[in-house]
Design a protein around this nucleic acid. Structure first.
Lengths: 336, 336
DNA sequence: GTCGTATATGTGACCGGTCACACTGGGTAA
DNA sequence: TTACCCAGTGTGACCGGTCACATATACGAC
């Protein structure tokens, strides 16, 4: 008979009604100080803990948030989730993080999470990686992370991608580079588009235009960065600097450049994006844009919790700034 | 009035009792085929989905597993969690993954998860990183990941650390190395101990002993690997190969060696452990031991689910083998 | 003295399922 | 014919909390 005590057990033990116990555990002010002290003592003595499942049912919500990302192993995603989890817990929410590699898995997950009442809100990281955003259930508060919302229903939060990319390219311009190549991510994703815009804006600010021969796409992987750099080189390769839209592609590109006999950074300066953990341990240590992923996660959780509390409030979009981290993969262009 | 339909709504709509609905959604055989077909049709028409919260309460369990790790951003942990999640979902369980950086946070988390009935079982990654294993609640099925259980109560699963380390060192021995340095992880963790044992066993197999001057510890970070290598060099540095117990420390060590004028791999061969994502993009591409982290996660989830089903069954320990990945940081020792 | 009001506490119904058990009617064995 | 079984279905209670409302007592104002 080692069952956990219920609120009724406590009530009879303390000689009061269950409602009084309920009031005590919920901090209701309308309980006599004396009664409260006594009840608290009995609760402690019996080791009573309110059952969250029962509470969720009675209250009609679960105080749980879902966080859906393409995977858990991408460092960027993991940081966002970690930040979101910390923030959620501070507000008394739990975070159920799940990964869905593809659209079908995502749809299945949403279908299992939302209509069954398991979560009060949903947070979607990288909603435009495929058609997954279409499956976001309209009946639940949702927030998009790493993208701008394409309808009014849900809020969104992302890095200030455009400005960050602009800063990265400006760094190269400041070093005297004029022929700056670009390796971008999948164009379906907002962040690629926005970083492209930042690239163009920075060039334009320097009185330069975008040369299509200097622009190639990748899929964020190091391998794709390697291939993209090879494409750039094959197309003539008249560039002295390269902006890769993430660090993995930058690392891949560095290898391709070196294999082609270009020195980095002497012949080609390379800047990445993300500041992945070992960025400073690559050869050369990578200059990059650091994102405050934890901050994005925290902010996303906070906004989602607000939305759960007031579903009618307007959702809106928020931006988080990035920070330039200069290491050794970028140097001044001395040539003509 | 856009409330979700309940089992009672479906029952009255279909003209049967709620129990019959319950039987249909739970696949109970004792329902006439005709009735079942009709009920299923009504369910589909109304878009009814059983509420998991209510179900959990009535049944007395939540079909949710907790996965507690020191953090989410460590690639190794993330892989384990991803594997565990996939496996759990296949068995109809959800995985609530949370991170607890320190012992206090861990204790708080367990305290919030277990006595409140939110989860049916707990999975703890790296239980010996601090005193956290002492806080694992005795009243719930638990499994330790990345360590051997120190009491009979819960099961455990880990890599076959000893054999893996032995394989790594044997690789260096096979290349003709005799003076092999070691950078190990925190000794409180089983895996460090076991990898140490594997190191010693391999040396012994070659008729060599462990030279304490060639053994230094780190904390898994690249920085600690860097410092450890400096210590080794300061102590004389008469080694031609180095086994670092994880890739990050290996990468740090490579930098320290180079800064001290030692070439890698010409002067010192370096082997790591883990096969982190960009291991092949470091300079030189890192020879390492690849762990099947997804496999460990899956296996852990499976064992935990078994334990939830049969709490009395003996728990036991399971091992997963690792695999040698040879790249360019290790070469034959040609010297005397 | 009566009333109104505030404070402290208790009661029954309810959240949405499931469980144990009761009931119905047709078929078969005695 | 009666007894019994069994498939198919329904009923009330229950899981462990919370909600809305009722009640009891104390206090001040009229």
């Amino acid at each position: 008979m080692r069952q956990r005590p219920t609120i009724r057990d406590v009530a009879s033990q303390a000689g009061v009604s269950r409602q009084t116990i309920s009031r005590v555990i919920n901090g209701d002010a309308r309980v006599a100080a004396e009664t409260r002290a006594h009840v608290e003592q009995v609760i402690a003595a019996m080791g009573f803990r309110p059952n969250v499942i029962a509470r969720s049912m009675a209250r009609g919500h679960s105080r749980t948030l879902a966080c859906l990302s393409p995977n858990l192993t991408d460092y960027t995603f993991a940081c966002i989730i970690e930040g979101a989890e910390a923030e959620a817990r501070q507000h008394g929410f739990f975070l159920l993080s799940s990964s869905a590699p593809d659209e079908a898995a995502f749809a299945a997950l949403v279908d299992e999470l939302v209509p069954e009442g398991r979560v009060d809100g949903v947070m979607v990281i990288n909603p435009y990686i495929d058609g997954r955003y279409q499956h976001i259930s309209p009946e639940v508060p949702a927030i998009l992370v790493g993208a701008r919302s394409r309808d009014q229903r849900c809020g969104s939060i992302s890095l200030d991608e455009m400005r960050a990319a602009q800063t990265a390219v400006q760094h190269l311009l400041d070093l005297g580079h004029r022929r700056i190549a670009l390796i971008h991510g999948p164009l379906a994703e907002d962040c690629s588009q926005d970083r492209n815009a930042g690239y163009a804006a920075a060039l334009q600010g320097a009185g330069l235009g975008v040369d299509p021969a200097l622009v190639v796409g990748g899929d964020w992987s190091a391998t794709s960065g390697y291939a993209a750099a090879q494409t750039l080189l094959a197309a003539g390769g008249a560039f002295t600097a390269l902006f890769a839209q993430n660090d993995r592609m930058a690392v891949g590109a560095v290898r391709a450049l070196r294999e082609a006999g270009r020195r980095v950074p002497e012949d080609v300066s390379v800047i990445g994006f993300d500041d992945i953990p070992l960025a400073s341990y690559f050869d050369p240590p990578l200059t990059t844009m650091r994102q405050d992923m934890h901050g994005i996660g925290r902010e996303a959780a906070r906004k989602l919790i607000d939305q759960v509390a007031l579903p009618e409030a307007p959702a809106g979009h928020a931006n988080i700034p990035a920070q330039l981290v200069v290491r050794h993969s970028t140097i001044r262009h001395e040539g003509r």
